[in-house]
Design a protein around this nucleic acid. Structure first.
Lengths: 154, 154
DNA sequence: GGTTATTGACTTTCTTTGACTTTCATTTTT
DNA sequence: AAAAATGAAAGTCAAAGAAAGTCAATAACC
């Protein structure tokens, strides 16, 4: 039972592929095409095309409005440095960490197997301690793994 | 009069047979089919399709949700099963964990890169919390990663 | 009597929808 | 020409819907 959101995600990714990582679309048009509420498009953008997943969104309202989706393309080493120095502080949610791992896989920094091992390591369920500390422990683990990956690349 | 749980177990096993050891199902659908409470399905999964018995379960909630059941190849994975069931309890030292990872690398179960990522994830330094809990957290993480690897080797 | 099954109420997670708001461009009034 | 009205977008947020999870109470079976 394919989810609508997944179909829209695939559709947008195919368009991005064709158009070299950047595209503009009309929210209502797309909603019409998929016969859904316009706000469904926002949901897909928020959950599947977030910054952590490596996309940047710009838009404009009013007549002639649009939504522009940009696939970010940073050098992999720079990206990992950015994650270590800026993105991950001393706490990070499971969702955000998963999105980052997803993105690293997308960029070919890690293999699929590696991505699954990493996701296992940062799971709430995996980290068996008080919720208040989970995000902190997760941040530490994530940074330790990223540091290792960075080393591997140099 | 065979017990309901046994019937459901048989049913799922037959499906697994047909589908080469991996299948996806809808909890409510199956519960409807057997005219039982949905939570009965969870009971069957917990008691008959546990990791101990060689199955791995994944699921997702919400619209388009599912339950995925994966039959693991117990024979070729007996070392990992041993680790999960016997060797690693609810605590493990960094040294012991590293030894295990090293051994898995030696046996060709994981790649060198994977071994380094795993070691990063279970380092004392990686896990930034009170020493008293470190060994417990490490055990959880280790088991989560091993479980994932089990699935990968299927 | 103790273990194993079954059920149901409640919770959590993820998705979809719709009502309402904001922003911008164009057209109409004054 | 400036101001006001209109219409055409996109944004927000909360409610409804669609699954699966949890847990404790009861029931059934050795």
């Amino acid at each position: 039972m394919a989810r609508l959101s997944d179909m829209i995600e695939e559709f947008i990714k195919a368009l991005l592929e064709e158009s070299n990582g950047q595209l503009e679309l009309q929210r209502n048009e797309l909603a019409d095409y998929f016969e859904c509420a316009p706000s469904q498009i926002n949901y897909v953008l928020a959950t599947r095309f977030s910054l952590d997943r490596g996309y940047y969104i710009e838009s404009r309202r009013g007549g002639g409005g649009y939504i522009r989706i940009i696939r970010l393309d940073m050098d992999s080493n720079d990206y990992i440095m950015y994650l270590l120095k800026e993105r991950i502080g001393n706490r990070i949610s499971q969702q955000a960490a998963e999105d980052i791992i997803h993105h690293m896989l997308d960029k070919g920094i890690i293999t699929e197997r590696e991505s699954l091992i990493m996701k296992a390591a940062i799971q709430d369920k995996g980290i068996g301690i008080p919720t208040s500390l989970k995000d902190n422990v997760r941040a530490s683990i994530m940074k330790a793994m990223l540091t290792t990956i960075l080393k591997l690349r140099n």
